[in-house]
Amino acid sequence: MIVSKLFKFSILLSILSLFTVPLTANAATELTVFAAASTTESMNMIAEAYKKSTPDVKILFNFDSSGTLKTQIENGAYCDVYISAGQKQMNQLDIKADPKINTKKLDFLAEGTRFNLVSNKVVLIVPKGHNPKGIKDFKDAVTDKVGIISLGNLDVPVGLYSKEIYESLDLWDKLKSMNKISYASTVKVVLSQVAEGAADCGLVFRTDAATSKAVDVVAEAPQGSHRPIAYPAAIMKETKNMEAAAAFVKFLKGPECEKIFNSIGFSVIGK
């Protein structure tokens, strides 16, 4: 009788285990990472690498312009880690930043987590194999070689850098007055406009050009023509997964991610 009861109890435990195992397997931690559009390819590769070493953490990305991501965070969107393509957008969320930039006194960054992840360069691109007028210099934008030039909006990091470049060449006001600029909401839209031939040329980050087979790079921005390009990253103060977020940020700083960033065309800051 006792043996029979034990046998029935063991069967009951076995049945219950069928239901409890999937629950354990599905209890993965989810990290929401807001990342600048220009990091799309590298961050997707990094997520795949991280999955192999840390399978119990799932990375959920939100890719968009740094300005749009900043606004979403400010308006209450949940985010564990924010990676911007420009300092301005991160500064606007950082209580320690210049109050002339963080005019709303926003305080979204977890103490001591902000750092500069990678750097980039701005390049001039044309459609792949189609450059009949021989565009080869940033100054060509104000000549008859260019009918339409695609630039990022001025609330997008690549747009701000583009403006600085043409200001340094003393050509910004002239370029604006010529009605040649097609403004784009993200650097990926600039890339698409040029790749599809909707624009004769455009300014993008070197890493974006490197991931496209539909454009050619004809020039790099002149040395000193814009502020240094650094991508700041930080953990958000309101994260519900501080330990997991910190572990992911540590991984971002590691040698495996350095190889991935370098393969796309980024330079790891401090290396």
Rank of each mutant, 00 (worst) to 15 (best):
V3W: 09
S4I: 12
K5Q: 02
L6W: 12
L6H: 02
I11P: 02
L12R: 00
L18A: 03
V21W: 06
P22E: 08
P22V: 07
N26C: 03
A28P: 00
E30H: 09
V33G: 03
F34K: 10
S38I: 10
T39K: 07
T39G: 00
E41T: 15
M43T: 04
P55D: 04
D56I: 00
V57W: 07
V57G: 01
K58E: 14
K58M: 10
I59Q: 03
L60A: 11
N62Y: 12
D64W: 11
S65I: 07
T68L: 11
T68A: 14
K70Q: 14
Q72V: 00
I73F: 04
G76F: 11
D80A: 07
I83Y: 04
G86I: 09
K96P: 00
K96I: 01
K100P: 01
I101N: 05
I101H: 07
K105D: 07
F108P: 00
F108M: 11
L109R: 07
L109G: 09
E111D: 15
T113K: 13
F115V: 05
F115G: 02
S119N: 12
S119I: 02
K121Q: 14
K121H: 11
V123L: 08
I125S: 03
K128I: 02
H130N: 14
D137G: 01
F138G: 04
D140R: 13
V142F: 09
T143F: 07
T143M: 09
D144H: 08
K145S: 10
K145Y: 09
I149V: 15
I149R: 04
G152H: 11
L154W: 02
V156E: 15
P157W: 03
P157V: 05
P157I: 05
V158H: 14
G159H: 06
G159L: 08
S162E: 10
S162A: 15
I165M: 09
I165W: 12
I165H: 12
E167G: 01
S168W: 05
S168N: 15
K174F: 00
K174L: 13
K176R: 12
M178F: 04
M178C: 01
N179F: 09
I181N: 11
Y183W: 15
S185Q: 11
T186E: 12
V187N: 13
K188H: 12
L191E: 15
Q193E: 14
E196C: 01
E196H: 09
G197M: 07
A199R: 06
C201L: 08
C201G: 07
G202V: 09
L203W: 01
L203S: 07
T207R: 03
T207Y: 05
D208I: 13
T211W: 03
T211S: 14
S212Y: 05
D216Q: 06
V217W: 08
A219Q: 04
A221E: 10
A221N: 06
Q223S: 08
H226S: 04
H226V: 01
H226K: 03
R227M: 08
P228N: 03
P232V: 08
A233H: 00
M236D: 04
K237D: 15
E238I: 04
E238F: 06
N241F: 01
E243N: 10
A244E: 12
A245F: 05
A246H: 08
F248Q: 02
V249T: 13
K250G: 02
F251P: 00
L252P: 01
L252Y: 02
C257V: 04
C257N: 12
C257F: 02
K259E: 14
I260W: 01
F261K: 05
F261C: 03
N262M: 04
F266N: 05
S267K: 14
V268G: 00
I269V: 12
